[in-house]
Design a protein around this nucleic acid. Structure first.
Lengths: 336, 336
DNA sequence: TTTATTTACGAAACCGTTTTCGTGAATAGG
DNA sequence: CCTATTCACGAAAACGGTTTCGTAAATAAA
């Protein structure tokens, strides 16, 4: 750590630490000559304020936490980008925590935030998270929380999401229009808001198009890529296999393509595919993948902005607002 | 922030703050009954120690910084995963900073670390970083730095890298064996260690196979995806266009495929492609992409482990060791 | 029984800032 | 010329832990 402290600057200049501190923070009660002297010495001695001392005294860390299920998903990568860009702009630091889709980890991580380590939290909950008690607790402790993408319905705070229901609806409608009769929806978790909303949209689309109940088909996948592969393959080998498939999250894409390849099912001839994904390689897949891409960067940026808006006014409570940033459906050959 | 402090616990139990503090840290000079009382009250009052107070006093933050050029690249995503896993395991927190390939940002970020905000730094330098003076400075300030993947040759510290030269050699040799006569190497930056080492390997392979100088061809791309696309396209339209191409980093892959598609060049018929990438979708691209995949997770994990090893023994200096974790060449149809 | 040592705890300094309050000097107002 | 302000700064108290050192009581050693 840097060894030059305010005390050293003060002694060197024959000033009090109070004066130096104020000079550094450009206080109006310090003469400009003094400020100049302090600033130049500080620069020459490479002074950088100890953040822990400041944070302790100011009761403000200038740090936010980003809690994510994983970082391998391109959505989260891009979201981090958005978050970091506004954080860096505002002079904030960002701590990153991965839950790996585990509720227990999420709980432990959130619990620690009661220490005041961070001024605010951006979170996309784990697939195992079925309630938000742990989140309510940190909010009660005075730490604002903003959800992005994956929210907890039962906690009242700001949330930045995309139009999941509509996208589920659009995806299914599109496949129906393309002639699909049996469309399977790949869900990632029965607890997840995004998963459920997309699924509800899908169901609504089926209903609106006079599909019968036995024509709907939900497949619950997990986080293990091999297991997912086997589940999907099994589904595709069934007597009345689906002729359309909607992947609720990015990580199913590879398994779908590989399973089809394995079973010699042609996309889109035998089965049409749509995936919720932000992968830039969607375009150059074989065949090019019809996707629903979320405005990941924008969502991250917006979530951070919403959080900072309350942080600057030192308000601890966040109103129960919801910002919806729509996703877009990119039609490509896999559903053609 | 949590409002229960050590002082409150102490008052409640008629103990001194010193005793409570020691009890919480399981000091040997506190009786087990007292410890019990303290622990149970702490739990019931939801006590979590203020990290800033501890850090200030202990002069240790239990936090590390990860400085990355970007997070969109799958290599970095996976590396973060590795880093975070060991950090969480060791009870450390991880701050993330993105340079967006800008040297100025990298400098500013590093500069701030002289404050003692972090106990150690993991860094993969920006594409603009041609020297390591800013890094030497933080090291001089007593903060250990470990490079991973992209290193600065001129600073002496630990580094975790992959066998870039060998992989460049392997990639080029493979293409030569496949019959390529004109192989273009796509470099990302003339300053970057990885880029240059891979390029040297490529050159060596050409030389070893009696290629003439006019058969080697280096194309320097940048960070702008559209520009890269145009550059690549221009190259592919040249009279004596390459019949093999090696993409030094992941982000060129899309542009190559799209350009070939645009120009109706078949991969691998007209041109064979190898890419340094960790994309899991490489397998399902059209055609499946021959890749060199780096052990990203392992590298992140190792880099973090190396750092923690010196952190625990409170040593500030890191010996000039280099850990090399080899990458693997995955042969697929794009080079077939 | 006397002395040495261990046990279990408390007082207080300390980490480096920030911030409140006080104060002497300079300036302004009347 | 005398009294208000303003100006520019300093002393000291926080912030919430940790750590050193001291000490009374209990135990062990002699």
């Amino acid at each position: 750590m840097s060894n030059t402290t305010i005390k050293i600057l003060a002694k060197e200049l024959n000033l009090s630490v109070a004066t130096v501190s104020k000079a550094l923070r450009d206080s109006h009660e310090i003469s400009s000559e003094t400020k100049q002297k302090v600033l130049t010495l500080a620069k020459s001695l490479n002074y950088v304020a100890n953040p822990y001392a400041s944070s302790l005294r100011k009761r403000r860390s200038n740090t936010i936490a980003v809690v994510l299920p994983e970082v391998a998903d391109s959505f989260f990568s891009q979201a981090i980008n958005g978050i970091e860009s506004v954080a860096q702009d505002k002079g904030y630091h960002v701590l990153i925590y991965l839950t790996h889709e585990s509720f227990a980890r999420e709980e432990a991580i959130l619990k620690e935030f009661q220490s005041g380590r961070v001024d605010g939290i951006l979170i996309s909950v784990s697939g195992e998270t079925s309630h938000g008690d742990h989140i309510k607790e940190v909010i009660a402790a005075g730490i604002p929380v903003v959800f992005f993408d994956r929210v907890c319905e039962d906690v009242e705070t700001a949330r930045v999401i995309t139009d999941d229901f509509e996208c589920g609806y659009k995806a299914a409608s599109h496949l129906i229009k393309q002639g699909c009769k049996r469309i399977t929806f790949l869900s990632v978790s029965s607890d997840l808001s995004i998963s459920n909303n997309r699924m509800e949209g899908y169901k609504k689309a089926l209903a609106d198009h006079q599909f019968k109940d036995n024509q709907s088909d939900i497949l619950f996948c997990g986080n293990d890529i091999d297991e997912n592969y086997n589940l999907i393959k099994k589904t595709l080998k069934k007597d009345r296999r689906p002729d359309g498939i909607i992947a609720c999250v990015e990580k199913f894409t590879g398994s779908i393509y590989l399973a089809c390849n394995d079973l010699k099912l042609s996309i889109p001839g035998d089965i049409k595919v749509i995936s919720f994904t932000n992968l830039q390689t969607a375009l150059i897949l074989n065949p090019p993948l019809t996707t629903i891409t979320q405005p990941a960067f924008e969502m991250g940026k917006t979530a951070a902005s919403v959080l900072f808006k309350t942080l600057v006014k030192n308000s601890t409570s966040l109103k129960n607002e919801t910002v919806i940033i729509p996703s877009v459906l990119n039609l490509r050959y896999s559903s053609g």
